[in-house]
Design a binder for these strands. Structure first.
Lengths: 244, 244
DNA sequence: TTTTTGTATTATGAATGCAAAATCAGTGGA
DNA sequence: TCCACTGATTTTGCATTCATAATACAAAAA
């Protein structure tokens, strides 16, 4: 049997030039599976048939199973004893929960980024912002989404707390899957862009307190969109902490 | 070879009476390893020899490896390619990071618990509080620690956001290991108890805003203790968001 | 027709086998 | 004495194999 599929081998190539690339097969698979799940290639609830998946990836079941356990810990996959694994369902209730936690984390990130980020960091975010505006102007929703996501991730990353970034990323992955369902109306889209203008402004002025509030509102609006996409009108506002 | 060690089999017994117990071996192992790590039986940095550990647990390497991958995702274990796994080191820098995130999460929990918890929940926490006072009065530090931990976990749990509780627990596990190093002075201990009195008071009065602040301060004090235990005087205050 | 039961097939869970990499012990040389 | 090298041993990573549970399906009974 083949040792590794060409695609997998190619993926992790070219990191730091002097060092030999040295990754574990199951880590490659984790990355690959995560992408497949987040991008919807593996739909929520879909069963992960070990034999089929292993064959498709050109590996044996062992590293695949290890990767599945890893993703199960991250919450992207659910395990049923003797019944295998499936992609975690996109439960509206859980989405709400995650948004509440993400709200607290983004608020924290907003606070921290205003203190810790240097001018280059902010310039980078600003550049992404304009790139995003370009996608908006062209009406390229997919590109807009990707860019938007990069901005939020960059913001959290530049808060200077790796743990925060990691937890954020992990929770975000679960929710991100809904994005490919969502379909923004023009009005909503314009509103989101306007919010981003304000976010950038607060960031540039390093107004942490304001950035915090803006990010929270932005996230709350995003939640509404996601819930609509999932076919659940948000009956009651999610339990958000008072903006104190 | 034995299928399962008696100890492991006993652990998950007695759920709902009609149903047969049905757990995965690697899940048992995850629980067991996590305990061993958190309780210091497996010290930070210590190598996880697969053959030895598997023998000790009475299982083969396969489910053990799966459990290790699971814990690696949770951050309790670190993997080095071709060099196996070791218990994640207790890095002071990372401890600080985690405390910052835990601060945001506990603040959120404090807010939520004041809205969502019912009287029974609060009565339960109050009971734990008095139990803790008893341990304090007797000078039983270990029992105090355990009870203290249960209070904080219960508080987060009763916030009514399972995702929050899960993330909190996961981050907490990393930091918890330092507890068995720490050695509280009497003065510090008394102070911590006093803080808990205030926390309970705010909870009973459902004063979310105040509870939030109390929890944050309490956590900040705890961080100081932990850092001292790790031999790192906290040079500068950790980047905490403004209490606004 | 519907339900149930027995059987064949398939998938999962765990153990074992095997090759490659890392570690260690010992030797030789500077 | 210290270091570099070499071969043996250990350990890891992955594949394969085996046992058991789940599923599908057909035949029999209600």
């Amino acid at each position: 049997m083949l040792r590794i599929s060409p695609e997998l081998a190619a993926e992790g190539a070219s990191r730091s030039p002097g060092l030999v690339e040295r990754r574990l097969l199951h880590e490659e698979v984790v990355g690959r599976l995560r992408d497949m799940i987040v991008q919807g290639e593996l739909a929520p609830e879909s069963k992960l048939n070990e034999r089929v998946l292993a064959e498709r990836l050109g590996i044996s079941r062992t590293p695949l199973r290890e990767a599945i356990k890893y993703l199960a810990s991250a919450g992207l996959v659910e395990l049923a004893p003797n019944r295998g694994a499936k992609v975690a369902p996109l439960k509206p209730e859980k989405v709400k929960e995650i948004f509440v936690v993400l709200g607290a984390l983004e608020a924290l990130a907003g606070d921290l980024v205003c203190r810790n980020a240097n001018d280059a960091d902010i310039a980078e975010i600003r550049a992404l912002h304009y790139e995003m505006l370009a996608h908006h102007a062209r009406g390229d929703l997919a590109a807009y989404f990707r860019c938007n996501q990069r901005i939020h991730l960059k913001l959290v990353e530049r808060a200077g707390n790796a743990t925060l970034a990691q937890v954020y990323g992990s929770l975000n992955a679960y929710v991100l899957r809904a994005r490919y369902i969502a379909n923004l109306s023009r009005g909503r889209w314009d509103k989101a862009v306007k919010e981003h203008e304000e976010i950038l402004d607060a960031l540039v002025r390093r107004d942490g307190a304001r950035l915090k509030l803006l990010l929270r509102d932005h996230l709350a609006n995003k939640l509404v969109l996601v819930m609509e996409a999932l076919g659940h009108a948000p009956e009651s506002a999610p339990a958000q902490p008072a903006a104190g």
